[in-house]
């Protein structure tokens, strides 16, 4: 069943996402949620995905506090009230 989740949009993507810093979508998985986001804001698709399929390697996606690469990647299931963050990879140390 589809659930309501929040997607946090980083500054670098806001101009393609109606200048919003977060968007609510209905989804059952991360893939679902990102698809829903891209349906609403089609310009995001090319930013988030390489060849329309794989996540761009400089885009990190988190479900709550966990990087989805430690979960089931795009197939990670989501639950009502979850928060998805899209975060550019950043330097540091």
């Amino acid at each position: 069943m589809s659930q309501d989740v929040h997607v946090l949009i980083p500054n670098a993507l806001r101009s393609q996402a109606g200048n919003l810093s977060s968007v609510s979508v209905q989804a059952t998985s991360i893939r679902d949620a990102l698809d829903a986001l891209c349906t609403q804001f089609p310009e995001l698709k090319a930013r988030l995905f390489k060849d329309g399929q794989q996540l761009n390697r400089f885009v990190n996606v988190y479900l709550n506090d966990e990087d989805i690469r430690f979960l089931k990647h795009l197939d990670t299931e989501i639950h009502g009230g979850d928060e998805i963050s899209i975060v550019p990879a950043i330097a540091g140390g």
């Binding site: 946090l8 980083p10 500054n11 810093s21 990190n60 988190y62 506090d65 990087d67 963050s85 975060v87 550019p88 950043i90 330097a91 540091g92 140390g93």
Partner: peptide, 30 residues
């Protein structure tokens, strides 16, 4: 959390506050 958690939060803070975060919005110069 670990450094990667710190980094994620830092990136979100950099989006919100008018600060020079050396490893985020000053990264190319840093």
């Amino acid at each position: 959390g670990n450094y990667d958690d710190v980094n994620r939060l830092c990136s979100q803070i950099a989006d919100k506050y008018p600060w020079a975060i050396v490893n985020v919005n000053l990264r190319p110069f840093y």
